[in-house]
């Protein structure tokens, strides 16, 4: 299954983010370092997001980088304080990797990245935007990525739902029988 830039832009538009700036403009916004007090260069922010996405997204998906950078950057930029909270949660993932494993998160092998997230308790944490580290990572990073995917047409198609909840896919698909 191929995730495309179009998926990301359609999902952004349905989430109320004006997509007129286009994918390039959105990626540009993720390239800027916001003045939010979080010690996380934009390049590392993008890398961490993508690394977590590769853990929580199904392996059969292609085009994850384009999707994540376009969608997540656009959404995080569209809401006051949202990107700072997401960056803070990503920085926590990295800080804990250095403290517990003496490695940066991005330097870990893919399996170790997943193990690290589980040891943080992110898999079983209840998402809470104002909760513990694990709860905030679950809310701002993992669930942000999962929300982006499973409210998009491509994510819906993966599961077998033509118009997933949260996506304005029209009123034809509910009438159709299975293909």
């Amino acid at each position: 299954m191929e995730l495309t830039r179009r998926d990301a832009l359609a999902a952004l538009a349905s989430g109320g983010v004006v997509a007129g700036v286009g994918a390039a403009g959105l990626r540009q916004s993720l390239a800027d370092a916001p003045d939010d007090g979080v010690d996380l260069p934009p390049e590392r922010e993008r890398g961490l997001l993508l690394a977590v996405a590769r853990v929580v997204y199904p392996s059969e998906l292609d085009g994850v980088r384009e999707f994540v950078e376009t969608y997540v950057a656009g959404r995080a930029d569209a809401r006051d304080g949202y990107r700072a909270a997401m960056r803070d949660a990503l920085a926590t993932v990295d800080d804990r990797a250095r403290a517990w494993r003496d490695e940066e998160f991005l330097a870990l092998a893919p399996d170790d990245r997943e193990t690290h997230l589980r040891e943080l308790g992110v898999d079983t944490a209840d998402p809470d935007p104002e909760g513990t580290d694990a709860e905030r990572i679950r809310y701002y990073v993992v669930n942000e990525l999962l929300y982006a995917l499973y409210t998009s047409p491509a994510g819906g198609e993966l599961v077998g739902i033509g118009n997933p909840q949260g996506h304005p896919g029209g009123t034809d698909s509910y009438q159709r029988g299975p293909r």
Binding site: E60, L149, Q165
Partner: peptide, 16 residues
């Protein structure tokens, strides 16, 4: 599906 995904204890291929 999105509601299930956001509350699951699994991710990746297991979640799918």
């Amino acid at each position: 599906p999105v509601g299930t995904a956001l509350s699951a204890d699994e991710w990746g291929d297991d979640l799918l």
